[in-house]
């Protein structure tokens, strides 16, 4: 996660998917998993590996909400904004998180610690509101619990 961009490493990662059918998405996921985002410098490498134009790769990369093109924070907080979570105050929760962490949706905190994202449903709709911190789901969450979670992962 969040390794410094390295073209050789990127090529090795991409190479694992070159012969996989429909391998571009898995390759993008793998790059993002390793580097935390997909560097623009990966586009020609991907184009070469998958025998597509750079524009094709760019089109795919930018189509999907998941793929990031700039280095995110060390931790990512995804706040669910879909209906079930709305019914239990997720809009307010998101507002509070923005205020307390001083960050906007799509942005990261000044110290580079947290990225804030909105998502539509985390599959935890019976225990709303929900957030995901990195890959861990939290249900029935309050702003105070979000803050203590942030403290915990920071230390």
């Amino acid at each position: 996660m969040n390794n410094v961009w390295n073209a050789d490493r990127a090529n090795t990662i991409i190479g694992q998917f070159r012969t996989v059918r429909g391998g571009l998405l898995p390759a993008l996921h793998a790059l993002q998993h390793h580097f935390g985002y997909v560097d623009d410098a990966a586009i020609p490498l991907l184009a070469d590996a998958f025998n597509q134009t750079g524009a094709d790769i760019y089109g795919v990369l930018t189509y999907y909400h998941d793929f990031k093109r700039a280095r995110p924070g060390r931790h990512t907080i995804k706040v669910c904004r879909a209906e079930a979570c709305q019914s239990m105050g997720s809009e307010q929760l998101l507002d509070d998180i923005k205020k307390r962490l001083n960050v906007d949706v799509g942005g990261k905190t000044l110290d580079g610690e947290f990225s804030l994202e909105q998502v539509f449903c985390l599959g935890n709709c019976a225990l709303p509101p929900s957030i995901m911190m990195d890959e861990t789901l939290h249900g029935r969450i309050t702003i105070d619990q979000v803050e203590s979670l942030c403290r915990k992962v920071r230390s």
Partner: peptide, 8 residues
Amino acid sequence: DEGDSGTF
């Protein structure tokens, strides 16, 4: 892909 809110 289970994207619908309210489903799990």
